[in-house]
């Protein structure tokens, strides 16, 4: 059974540096649409990738967009310059992104995030305005409904 909150707990436990973005960040802000995956933006440094690997230990992480469903392993020959990782784990889908359209690279994303105290620890979450910028930049059909809700939430807060 998928438990996306447990993925967050594991990332935090292993001190993976990340910002929660995407649909689950929308849920955090109030969007009433079910999301199936965890999207995070993170620096693709060697140290952070090893922490990510430890966080997913025992969850059978695989690269879900490879036909062979290759196991996710951070070895010495791990490709440098990676920008994204699309993983499936026993707890659900985890997409790791190096940059976010409409916002920028990890540092820009981090700069537009807010720390949230959750039962799983402190999680940095993309701010509402940045999430709106990101969804608007994607201009995908699947995001339009979420965007309408996000703008409603923004109106309600102001």
């Amino acid at each position: 059974m998928e438990q996306l909150t447990q993925i967050l707990e594991r990332l935090n436990r292993e001190r993976v540096e990340f910002v929660l973005v995407g649909g689950l960040a929308g849920v955090f802000h109030g969007v009433p649409l079910v999301t199936r995956d965890v999207d995070v933006c993170l620096p693709f440094t060697e140290q952070n990738l090893f922490r990510l690997e430890r966080a997913l230990d025992g969850l059978n992480p695989v690269h879900r967009q490879t036909p062979q469903r290759l196991a996710f392993k951070v070895a010495d020959d791990f490709p440098r310059g990676l920008k994204n990782l699309y993983l499936r784990t026993d707890l659900g889908v985890l997409d790791c992104l190096g940059e976010i359209s409409g916002v920028g690279d990890y540092l820009a994303v981090r700069g537009r995030s807010e720390p949230a105290e959750l039962p799983v620890g402190t999680v940095h979450i993309l701010s509402l305005s940045a999430l709106i910028d990101a969804k608007a930049a994607l201009d995908r059909t699947q995001d339009k409904l979420a965007l309408i809700h996000l703008r409603r939430i923004q109106q309600a807060r102001s």
């Binding site: 955090f28 802000h29 659900g92």
Partner: peptide, 22 residues
């Protein structure tokens, strides 16, 4: 549905998403 969601705490929303996903 949005109004209902905004009555919850952010953590409650995340847990509700897990339940709904199940």
């Amino acid at each position: 549905l949005l109004e209902d969601s905004l009555r919850l705490t952010p953590w409650q929303r995340l847990v509700e998403n897990d339940r709904a996903l199940g």
